[in-house]
């Protein structure tokens, strides 16, 4: 499978098509077969973009770069997550040029979870720069063809300048702070060069609405492609755990009570997710970002439902190529 010259996700976003990105967590062992199997079974034909996490929650896993390349081999489009937690600017740029050479065209720039929460809490957290600086660095590679040092990107002195045409993403947490302050930060990310935003899982539409209004006030709902996050809860316990132990998660008590009271928790989880999707589709969002945490088998059904509902609101979309094409 030869990688595309530029991002298909970018083309879809540019054309105003509805996109569905799905998060994929690489395995905790050197096992490519595990990724291939999951991609073919759950992601192929469903995801416009496969978001490959970079040791999320500071838990050691296979690298995002490697798993993203497997996505390309399987005919899927990866969105490589890149965090500032484990690498300084040398490591980050090395990862970026490696990714570009391997055909990866989308990068999601994150600060990263602190090592304190992970499986190696005694490791040195790097945080050489923050996510806004990382976005600016990638954006400069794109616009000027220069590294962070100011050096031009060329194979040799006589060869052509290489401008890596990245599609740059950023993360947004619409909750937990004054919406206006959050929008100010997102405006910085936009100016630094972010093209799209993926948000933390949304459960509280009222809070999301306040954030959206603050984004609207700055015109950011137009100048950034926003993909709100949806995390279908599999059970009440998992949801409670996320509320208390996962940083940046905002889950209203009403949602937890609803999951506790449900006879069939999984059916209820799907219903909650789809109700949220319906309400989010009322906003001019560019797509949905799905987090199938510990529940990848739900992707095909949920993806079809989300697409169907998006189509009902008049949104257009491409069919996603199945595996191995």
């Amino acid at each position: 499978m030869t990688p595309p010259a530029s991002s298909t996700l970018r083309r879809k976003l540019e054309a105003g098509q509805f996109v569905l990105t799905v998060e994929m967590v690489p395995p905790r062992a050197p096992d490519l077969e595990n990724i291939t199997r999951r991609l073919q079974k759950f992601f192929a034909g469903n995801a416009d973009g496969v978001n490959v996490t970079d040791c999320a929650s500071a838990i050691l896993r296979m690298s995002s770069l490697c798993a993203s390349r497997v996505c390309i081999d399987e005919g899927l489009e990866p969105v490589m997550q890149l965090t500032c937690r484990d690498r300084n600017r040398i490591g980050l740029q090395s990862e970026l040029i490696s990714a570009w050479a391997m055909g990866i065209r989308n990068v999601l720039c994150l600060t990263g979870d602190h090592v304190r929460f992970g499986d190696h809490p005694t490791a040195k957290p790097v945080f050489d720069m923050d996510s806004t600086n990382l976005i600016a660095m990638v954006s400069r590679m794109r616009a000027e063809g220069k590294y962070c040092s100011g050096e031009e990107i060329r194979t040799s002195a006589k060869s052509d300048l290489i401008k890596m045409d990245w599609l740059i993403g950023g993360a947004a947490n619409p909750f937990g702070n004054e919406p206006e302050d959050l929008a100010l930060h997102m405006d910085k990310k936009r100016r630094a060069g972010a093209d799209f935003l993926q948000t933390q899982p949304v459960y509280d539409i009222e809070a999301f609405d306040a954030w959206w209004r603050a984004m609207e006030a700055r015109g950011l709902h137009r100048s950034l492609k926003i993909l709100p996050g949806i995390l279908p809860p599999k059970g009440a316990k998992g949801l409670e755990y996320m509320k208390t132990s996962v940083p940046g998660m905002h889950v209203p008590d009403a949602t937890i009570r609803r999951m506790q009271g449900a006879a069939d928790a999984q059916a209820e989880g799907r219903a909650i997710a789809l109700e949220l999707v319906d309400r989010l589709l009322a906003y001019p969002i560019a797509g949905i970002h799905l987090y199938p945490v510990m529940w990848e088998s739900v992707i095909p059904e949920l993806a079809a439902e989300i697409r169907g509902r998006a189509a009902k609101t008049g949104r257009t979309m491409d069919s996603v190529a199945p595996a191995g094409t």
Binding site: L110, T111, G112, D113, H114, P125, F127, D130, S131, T132, N133, A171, A172, N173, F175, G176, N177, D181, L182, L184, H185, K188, Q200, P247, G248, H250
Partner: peptide, 12 residues
């Protein structure tokens, strides 16, 4: 995390 441009996603 020595963030210089705004809060990280975990600020609640």
């Amino acid at each position: 995390k020595q963030m210089r441009n705004g809060p990280c996603g975990g600020s609640m």
